[in-house]
Nucleic acid binder design. Structure first.
Length: 309
RNA sequence: GGCGCGGUGGCAGAGUGGUUAUGCAGCGGACUGCAACUCCGUGUACGCCGGUUCGAUUCCGACCCGCGCCU
């Protein structure tokens, strides 16, 4: 795990070389085909060398969800284990990690038309009004949400309308799901924020220099994608989309993309800081070789590294 | 050198003789099926010096800096 631009990919490749491991991507943007440069997806050569599960598995027009991720990740873990290898989960989408480890409530799929209707309602009545509505059918969830929390209010409401029962009720009946794997959780990050900001800026510049805009233009030209899709809302893509539709100039787009990336990293840190059983690997410069330190940590917890490398 | 205009928190940008907008960024946080999402919280800043005043960011004067015009 680790914030964006913290060096996860590099470390993962090195681990693959030393452990008998295979990578499973835990990243909500890498799942989409055509989101390559801007998502910092490993190159085709790298992917050939280090196979990644859960990369390029979805068209940008079709949203991917945390529940699907859990299902797919578990399948990949099983497959990799069955081949005698170690599943190495790599990514920065913390909700996915959480869903995988703790499980989600098992809910039937909900008709997308319900969500559309809720969003239509919200655009005319405002989210606070829907929050009030939620308070009537699911007071527990409503109490935990700010009246402006659009997405979560929408979710709670669609569950109620779609299943006839409150989300909080479903959750209260949720049974603990135990993962059939022993986990060793590691977070990579620079020792201080300024360092990460530096890396983020550098990487973004490289992306632009490597044809990021052309990549988004291609998506834009398809005509069937829009800014409400998760793929197009991804950091960088959203700002490029605004630029291509003439809403902002290039300088603004770059500035906004940079800020959005930093904000993403900040949110990832918020998850990581309170994450249980996490081993931190902090680096201070590009020369830091983290793998030895990681192997030390693995030994500390009696992880069978010796047999693996 | 003269005249005019302007100097507000990191940036942008309102405003007022006392109650100290706002947006962006930054920072902190929340988040069980959109999560690279969505949402919440967080800053008395008014160029400098002196004066007027019970009280000046706001009024007056000098000075400094920027812009424009004139010589």
């Amino acid at each position: 795990m680790g914030p964006t631009a913290s060096g996860k990919t590099r470390l993962a490749f090195e681990l693959c070389d030393r452990l008998n491991a295979e990578i499973i991507s835990v990243d909500s943007a890498l799942v989409y085909r055509g989101l390559d440069i801007g998502s910092a997806k490993p190159t085709a050569e790298e992917l050939a060398l280090y196979p990644h599960a859960l990369v390029d598995i979805r068209d940008p027009a079709q949203p991917y969800t945390a529940a699907e991720f859990r299902r797919d990740a578990l399948a990949a873990m099983q497959d990799i284990s069955a081949r005698g290898k170690l599943p190495l989960l790599v990514g920065g989408t913390m909700l996915y990690f959480k869903a995988l480890i703790e499980g989600l409530v098992e809910l039937p799929a909900i008709d997308p038309a319900i969500r559309e209707d809720i969003e239509r309602q919200a655009s005319i009545r405002g989210w606070p009004a829907l929050h009030a509505e939620l308070a009537a059918c699911d007071p527990i969830t409503a109490a935990s949400l700010h009246p402006n929390h659009s997405q979560r209010i929408g979710r709670a409401l669609e569950v109620y309308r779609g299943t006839g029962r409150a989300l909080s009720q479903w959750q209260s009946e949720q049974q603990e799901q135990v993962l059939a794997y022993r986990l060793f959780q590691v977070a990579v990050a620079p020792v201080d924020r300024a360092l990460l900001h530096q890396r983020i800026e550098q990487r973004l510049n490289t992306m632009f220099a490597s044809g990021f805009l052309a990549e988004v233009e291609k998506l834009y030209a398809r005509g069937d994608l829009d800014r409400n899709l998760p793929a197009i809302r991804a950091v960088g893509y959203r700002q490029a989309w605004e630029y291509l539709s003439g809403e902002i100039d290039e300088t603004t787009m770059r500035a906004k993309a940079l800020a959005a990336t930093r904000q993403l990293a900040k949110r990832q840190f918020t998850w990581l800081r309170k994450w249980p059983d996490l081993h931190w690997l902090l680096w201070k410069d590009a020369e830091d070789n983290l793998t030895p330190a990681l192997f030390e940590k693995l030994r500390d917890v009696d992880f069978p590294v010796d047999g693996l490398y």
